[in-house]
Amino acid sequence: MAKKKMANKKNSYSMIMVVVSVLIVFVIIKVIAPYAFMILLGKDHTMPTPSTLMLWYMILAILACLVYVSTSDLKWANFLSFILPAGDDKFKALFQKMIIIAIPLLVGWFVYSGTVPGTASPVELRIQHPTLPQEFEKMENPFLHADEATKRKCIEEGKHLYQQNCRPCHGSKADGNGPFANAFRLRPINFTDPGTIATVVEAFAFWRIKEGGPGLPGVSTPWDSAMPAWKDVLTDTQIWKIIMGEYATAEVQARQREEMEH
């Protein structure tokens, strides 16, 4: 009786559904996303998903599927039942064979791609903001409390100084597309991106301009910065003006300090 019941029971394809779901996620991230970003952001090339993210997102996709199929005993049994004999179900038998062949192929591909000699440059962990030395922390823009007319004048002077000194790399629109930009492995920062200079206080920008790449701290080395140190070329006042002009050109605002209140 029980055997008959088992035989009549419809086969569960939840394992296949899991495989299909993972494949769909893979296709979305690997194939669709690069084109979607190209169209949405108006680029002339695709934006391929970085390998690190591919790995992380695929791990999450597999984990999500496994979590779902094990949320009850029944679902878990259905998921595992796919490896039981297929009986008369030809589709199931076909899928089983496909899975059995696919697993060693996948493992082989991973082993091959992981060990085959290549010339890829190493992946580096990057840190957004180097640690600002303490002597710069409390620095304030000397024109912060100036009247509006003086501020406007400083911004105009700053814009001029910016175009003279910074434009070759950071671009005339502060978008990181200066004429020299393509020569760098790590392109110059795009200041119009709200995730860059808009997230730091002005004192931070002051330090980066004044000390440049050579002044970066020992912590978290090696740094990837071709920024020259401008302290021997520009005066402090000029640097502050450049900062004002740079934020104005990029149309973003610097992080504002919060009041310390009890």
Partner: peptide
């Protein structure tokens, strides 16, 4: 993101 030089070149900017 940790990016290789090739990936950076393909993306064409600092942030994916």
């Amino acid at each position: 993101l940790p990016l290789s030089g090739e990936e950076r070149a393909l993306i064409g900017e600092q942030y994916h």
